[in-house]
Design a protein around this nucleic acid. Structure first.
Lengths: 153, 153
DNA sequence: CAGGCTTGGATAGCGTGCTATATTCATGAT
DNA sequence: ATCATGAATATAGCACGCTATCCAAGCCTG
């Protein structure tokens, strides 16, 4: 019945992610960016003109979340959305020059944040850490589309 | 300038935490609990009658976040708040019988979620993973109260 | 004791995640 | 051609994190 939160992977993951997000937010706020906008820009910097569907597949967020993030990015002048030439339902998101100009500064900020977070780990530990996170993510994703959570009866 | 998100600790931490939270939410929703409420209950199950300040120190969230979570918990009949006997500014949060009754089912759900997430890791890997997360958290917390984020000039 | 600083808490406002629902367009079968 | 189904997006409503502000109570110092 006792439950030690410092031995709970989920608790630690939540706490760690909050600290990462806070650090990143502090660094990219001067650029006029928010964390989810940065995450989305990472995709668009590599492949401009993606649809909402393509973005949410790449970022693994729900459709409504992606729609809201894109709306804020359009509001903030980071993207424009134009109708998809071949599909009247879809839109493509195109970067504005302002958004393209932020790439170097924003990725530097993120790299810096990552470096600080892992500063106390050796190279081998950091590599192992990334690998463990990727494996846990894969496991959790598989559990989501596979088995629905078991009835706790 | 290129930035591989699958090699970014912050990106992976965010993704992993979302998957953990989603899994937990699915499991405790039938109990009428939300993740932050569960996290708060973990403290109160151990030490009933804590103040908002004590809770936020233990959980490392901002004061406003804790205030809102407690308001929802009171609304949902999980706690009652009564004035602190020695300090007219403070209140103590006391568990209702309903909240006490949820302890076993909720901690089982969380343990189950953790077990699934780590199912593909060996015992040694899981232990190392928890340890790495604790170390990264410690580093990030130190960076927060220590140096403000450097000017990206 | 008065005035000012500190501390506990509440509230407003926003970003980001979610679920659930509605809308619109595409497509395939009759 | 029509009609049903499915796919892409939008919207409402909520939880939970944050910052910034405000209020009230404690406390300390002159």
């Amino acid at each position: 019945m006792t439950f030690d939160k410092t031995a709970s992977a989920g608790y630690l993951a939540n706490h760690m992610a909050r600290l990462f997000a806070h650090g990143l937010q502090q660094r990219i706020q001067p650029l006029g960016l928010a964390p989810a906008q940065f995450m989305t820009l990472l995709e668009l910097w590599d492949a401009d003109g993606l649809t909402q569907k393509q973005l949410r597949d790449r970022l693994d967020v729900e459709q409504a979340t992606m729609a809201n993030t894109l709306r804020r990015m359009e509001r903030d002048g980071l993207i424009v959305r134009r109708p998809h030439p071949d599909d009247g339902r879809a839109q493509q998101a195109w970067l504005t020059p302002a958004a393209r100009a932020l790439r170097a500064a924003a990725t530097d900020a993120a790299r810096d944040q990552n470096a600080r977070a892992l500063a106390d780990l050796t190279e081998a530990e950091a590599a192992a850490f990334l690998d463990l996170m990727r494996r846990v993510i894969r496991t959790l994703r598989a559990a989501e589309d596979g088995e629905p959570p078991p009835d706790p009866a």
